[in-house]
Design a protein around this nucleic acid. Sequence first.
DNA 1: GGCGCTATGTATAATTG
DNA 2: TCAATTATACATAGCGC
Lengths: 214, 214
Amino acid sequence: MARKKVKLAWISNDSSRRATFKKRNKGLMKKVSELSTLCAVTACAIVFPPPPPTTTTNSHHQQPAEIWPSSASEVKRVIGRFAELPHMERTKRMMNQEGFLRHTASKLKEQVKRQQRENREQDVKLLMYQCLGGHKALHQLDSLKDLHCLGTSVDDIINQLYQRIDQLEFDYNTTTYDDDHHHQNTTTTTTTTPLINTTYDNHHDDDEATATTS
Amino acid sequence: MARKKVKLAWISNDSSRRATFKKRNKGLMKKVSELSTLCAVTACAIVFPPPPPTTTTNSHHQQPAEIWPSSASEVKRVIGRFAELPHMERTKRMMNQEGFLRHTASKLKEQVKRQQRENREQDVKLLMYQCLGGHKALHQLDSLKDLHCLGTSVDDIINQLYQRIDQLEFDYNTTTYDDDHHHQNTTTTTTTTPLINTTYDNHHDDDEATATTS
DNA sequence: GGCGCTATGTATAATTG
DNA sequence: TCAATTATACATAGCGC
């Protein structure tokens, strides 16, 4: 967007690509921020940094994604929670000495193990979130018991959850079915609140007043 | 950014705010798209549409979040892709022979790399679910964080599911008996949606009358 | 490789239809 | 209210340090 018109395609040049990335990423975040501020909307952007120079074989968990709101520490923290992930940055210094390889190998094994565990944990969390999001997803919980070594007690609980939710869903739909007509006006935003009752404080000073509408 | 310098603050004027939102949102999406293309990075933006005309708090179901890449369907695809946890398979076979160590080490490195990628992907997926799960997702994240469901595992979440069900039951009972009152503002969390069927399905028409109530 | 600069391409606020 | 137009504010590609 400057001295030359941009060709919308992968920038092959390694360094200029990264330069562009940095600039544009910054700009993007600013844009999100502005949009969010100007229009008081919830918005976020997530950008995963381009893979570091191939030489840097590793750095445990890659840099946390660039995101906005950085200010909305909630998101950052959530992401960070996972991104931060323990240890291991020093896999770097690897030498090729026989005596070292064993050491390295075992280190790597450890790492792999840890990461596997992490992955598994994330899988669980993810599935859980899906559950929070939808009943259908609850069925996926089933896979948990197979894929992961969770206590058997969980199965029972899950089954119970199934039944109760099914029942509730049925009752709910049945009971409120004919009520739809009124909904038009009575409906309160509602929605959301997947699981917990969100206590959110929308700290917008004045948006409440919006009366004008046109 | 045109005939007048923008003041970075909430645009009080209702119509111009929406106009601005539309324009900027479009621009933002374009930016994300460009960044993604130019630098070949994984990126996404999620923007929750500003509260509808607000004429009467009538918005049943909020519109789906504006997102990039390629709208919700794309995200769904991505999510779906992640759903099938590839996971490690052959972490096992490892030998400790001198001549093998190098090989093993490099293998492990690869694996680590893959797992890192997986972790990151999971991060995104997770965040997406969180965002797609509720329009007030960010706030919910906060709640979730406080409940340390992110930090720990199944047990906590199970408990939350229980709570959620209790809430549903409560809502159900309440709604069943009170429905006639048209609780206009009743912010009964209500919803069903989240738990019952979230459909990250983006058919954002208007929401079909879910049994939402309210 | 990052920083700053500047010429230009873009995004977009205000205006008009 | 939305679309097209216009005038400006911004973002940023290419360079030099």
